[in-house]
Design a protein around this nucleic acid. Structure first.
Lengths: 142, 142
DNA sequence: CTATTTTTGCAACATGGTTGCAAAAATCAC
DNA sequence: GTGATTTTTGCAACCATGTTGCAAAAATAG
């Protein structure tokens, strides 16, 4: 959770982004592996840190970070989108696992969706898979 | 496309729903296999048929049809939800294939997401898979 | 430090989700 | 069928969120 400021600064700069207070806090917030938040959750968390956050500023920063692929947008269900720090996976559209117990969102690049799973003649361009369930950690400690 | 009115009426009644003009047109619209529309697309299509459609009425009818499982809601990406006539598959959360060429949305119940695809300790409760690509038909005729 | 570029905060507007309520339509009981 | 009852519709209204423009503030470059 406590990522060094220099680490975050370096990440932002490496993507050609200026470093501002909101961006630093925003990235810091998503730095924990597995943590993925909705815009509302981000807004609330940032308000605790910064007092108040303009929703337009947050909205624009989310867009910039998405464009530069610092973060990813993952549609959990028809009415929820979560934001997550982009991992190191090459493909943008790898599967995710959402734990209904602890709300963690984990990348599952080991799960592959391949063309041979489909009837003949179908070509895959991309795919998006969300698996909802209980993660290994919650499964044990529960 | 031209499903007999009696067929649609029967479908609605079988779910315990009264038959109204909007519901009939709405179901008729989604009757074509593979057709899936956004709320906006539905609204526009219905306006051609009925002159004008109140967005609240449409919204409420979509909700009722979802509840009764006459239709399903499928999140195509972070900013698009499509509605589709519910098929005959037992599981609600079967995979879908979205053709980027003809925009058809096809059910792919043959693609299975199984627990053994995940690391040990993970339990699957449900899953949601959207595969984007080119369908067999477009692939040939293209 | 000053000039230039970027970012922020705010007003404003659009769109979609949601509720309440009275009028209209559908269904039910005769 | 008629009238009573239940359901559905259409509309006003409100809230949350997406989106743009613009001037002030902050960050960066020289």
């Amino acid at each position: 959770m406590v990522a060094k400021i220099t680490e975050i600064t370096a990440l932002l700069k490496s993507k050609g982004l200026n470093v501002t207070e909101i961006r630093r806090q925003l990235v810091a917030l998503l730095f924990t592996p597995g943590s993925a938040l909705t815009q509302k959750e981000i807004e609330e968390a940032l308000e605790e840190e910064l007092g108040s956050v303009d929703r337009v500023t947050l909205y624009r920063n989310l867009r910039v970070l998405l464009e530069k692929q610092v973060i990813h947008q993952i549609p959990i269900d028809a009415q929820t989108v979560k934001y997550k720090l982009a991992g190191v996976h090459k493909k943008v559209d790898h599967p995710h696992f959402h734990c209904s117990h602890c709300d963690q969102l984990l990348c599952m690049p080991q799960v592959k969706i391949a063309e041979n799973m489909l009837p003949g003649g179908f070509v895959i361009q991309s795919s998006q898979l969300i698996i909802e369930g209980v993660c290994d950690h919650c499964n044990i400690t529960q």
